[in-house]
Simulated assay, not measured.
Amino acid sequence: MDKFKTCEWCEENKTQAHLSNVYWELPDGSRAIQIVNVPSVCCSHCDMEYQEESVINEIEDQLMLIDTRLIDKVIPYEELMNLPRLLKRNYFRF
C-alpha cells in the first residue's frame, strides 16, 4: 500500500498502511473468527480504518477454498493465507 493515498471515506490524502485485527464470519455462517495483523488502511483525518477491496477478496477467496475446521477462534492473516487450499481458485468469483 502506498503512503498517503486518498481515503475511501473522507477523500483526504491522509492514509497510511496499517495492520489491524478484524472479525470475519465463515462462509458457511457457522461462526466468526478473529484475523490479526490484516493489511489495512488508516486515515489520520477521519480516523477510519478499513481493508482495501483486494485484501477483502483475498480473505473471502481463501475462506472459500480451505477447510475452515482447521481455524481456531483467532488466526494471523499470514497463517490464514498460507493454509492449504482444497481447490485452486474460487470458481464462483467472476
Rank of each mutant, 00 (worst) to 15 (best):
M1Q: 04
M1G: 07
K5N: 10
W9K: 10
E11W: 15
N13Q: 15
T15K: 06
T15R: 12
Q16G: 15
H18S: 12
H18P: 07
L19C: 11
L19V: 11
S20H: 15
S20D: 09
V22H: 13
E25S: 07
L26M: 04
L26I: 00
P27E: 02
P27G: 00
D28S: 03
Q34K: 08
Q34H: 03
V36T: 11
P39K: 06
P39A: 10
S40V: 08
S40T: 12
C43A: 08
S44I: 11
H45F: 08
H45P: 03
C46Q: 05
D47N: 12
E49Q: 10
E49M: 11
Y50D: 06
Y50C: 09
Q51E: 08
Q51W: 01
E52V: 02
E53G: 04
N57C: 07
E58V: 04
E58M: 15
D61K: 08
D61M: 02
D61P: 01
Q62M: 15
L63A: 02
M64S: 10
M64C: 10
L65N: 03
I66C: 01
D67W: 02
D67G: 06
T68D: 13
R69F: 04
L70Y: 02
I71N: 00
D72G: 10
D72S: 11
K73Y: 05
K73T: 13
V74R: 04
V74K: 04
E79R: 07
L80M: 12
L80Q: 03
M81P: 00
M81N: 01
P84V: 07
N90T: 07
N90K: 12
Y91N: 11
F92G: 06
F92Q: 15
R93F: 13
